[in-house]
Write a protein that binds this DNA or RNA. Structure first.
Lengths: 73, 73
DNA sequence: TCAAATAGAGCAATATAATGCACTATTTTA
DNA sequence: TAAAATAGTGCATTATATTGCTCTATTTGA
């Protein structure tokens, strides 16, 4: 899924920016380390709850925004 | 989960604004009708893929944004 | 450079999301 | 206000997300 990557990168970059390891983020968020590893490495299709838990610790939140309609793509 | 509701409402309202029934949205998105019903009725914890499929048809996209840090809440 | 820290993956068990079917409840509309 | 359309739920099955354990690969820093 093309759009997954954007979310993955946001999480990954944000985590690194905050200098948090996968292990720490897993603990802090209550998400299993294995689950986080899978998500960040592009395997996996997390549940909304899992994504929210991760985002929350990183000071992010999941949202829905209008797609850019006028793209010539 | 408090924050789920916001996402649910966004989906639900957007769907209604576009005058699309659950049945249509389910078909168009490729998500099972049962799954959509559960999500909109507040039961359920959809996978990111499911959420994206629904959002996509409605002209929305899942994103991560910075949380409002300075809230006295 | 090489040892420690961090990240990724195989395997297997368990929890739960996704789904369809059939039915009920609610809403819409003629 | 009654019929039709739309939305919500119980039950059961299947698919798959989550998890821990263990091991390997990669990255980092002294």
């Amino acid at each position: 899924m093309m759009h997954f990557e954007e979310l993955i990168n946001t999480i990954k970059e944000r985590r690194k920016m905050l200098r948090v390891t996968q292990e720490s983020l897993a603990e802090l968020s209550g998400v299993g380390l294995r689950t986080l590893k899978q998500f960040e490495s592009g395997k996996g299709n997390p549940t909304l709850l899992t994504l929210q838990k991760l985002a929350d610790v990183l000071g992010l939140e999941v949202c829905l925004k209008l797609k850019n309609v006028s793209r010539s793509k």
